[in-house]
Simulated scan of single mutants.
Amino acid sequence: MRLLLTVDSSEWDGGSGSWKPVEDQRLPTHLDAAPTEVVVGRHGELNLSTCPADHDHPHRWSIQ
Rank of each mutant, 00 (worst) to 15 (best):
M1W: 02
M1R: 06
M1L: 09
M1K: 08
R2E: 00
R2M: 03
R2N: 02
R2P: 00
R2C: 01
L3G: 07
L3A: 09
L3Y: 03
L4F: 09
L4M: 10
L4R: 12
L5P: 01
L5T: 07
T6D: 00
T6L: 05
V7P: 00
V7A: 14
V7H: 03
S9M: 06
S9G: 09
S9C: 11
S10E: 05
S10A: 10
S10V: 01
S10P: 00
W12T: 00
W12Y: 15
W12Q: 01
D13T: 01
G14I: 00
G15W: 11
G15I: 07
G15V: 09
S16V: 06
S16H: 10
S16A: 07
G17P: 03
G17W: 02
G17Y: 02
G17R: 07
S18N: 14
S18D: 14
S18W: 09
W19K: 11
W19V: 03
K20M: 15
K20H: 02
K20I: 07
K20S: 03
P21Y: 09
P21M: 11
V22S: 15
E23K: 11
D24T: 08
D24E: 12
Q25S: 05
R26E: 13
R26N: 11
R26H: 15
L27Q: 08
P28A: 15
H30V: 12
H30F: 07
H30A: 15
L31Y: 06
L31A: 08
L31S: 13
L31R: 13
D32L: 14
A33C: 15
A34D: 07
P35Q: 06
P35C: 04
P35F: 04
T36S: 14
T36H: 10
E37Q: 15
E37T: 08
V38G: 04
V38I: 15
V38P: 03
V38F: 09
V39A: 11
V39L: 12
V39M: 05
V40L: 06
G41I: 03
G41L: 06
G41H: 05
R42A: 13
R42P: 02
R42W: 09
H43L: 13
G44I: 04
G44F: 04
E45C: 06
E45M: 09
E45V: 01
E45D: 12
L46G: 04
L46H: 02
N47W: 04
L48P: 07
L48E: 06
L48W: 14
L48Y: 10
S49M: 11
S49K: 02
S49F: 05
S49N: 07
S49A: 11
C51L: 10
C51V: 04
C51A: 14
P52C: 10
P52T: 05
A53S: 12
A53P: 01
A53C: 07
D54H: 08
D54Q: 04
D54V: 01
D56S: 13
H57V: 03
H57C: 12
H57M: 12
H57K: 11
P58I: 00
H59K: 01
R60C: 04
R60V: 05
R60M: 04
W61N: 05
W61Q: 13
S62W: 00
S62R: 08
S62L: 09
I63D: 11
I63T: 12
I63F: 06
I63P: 07
I63G: 04
Q64T: 10
Q64E: 12
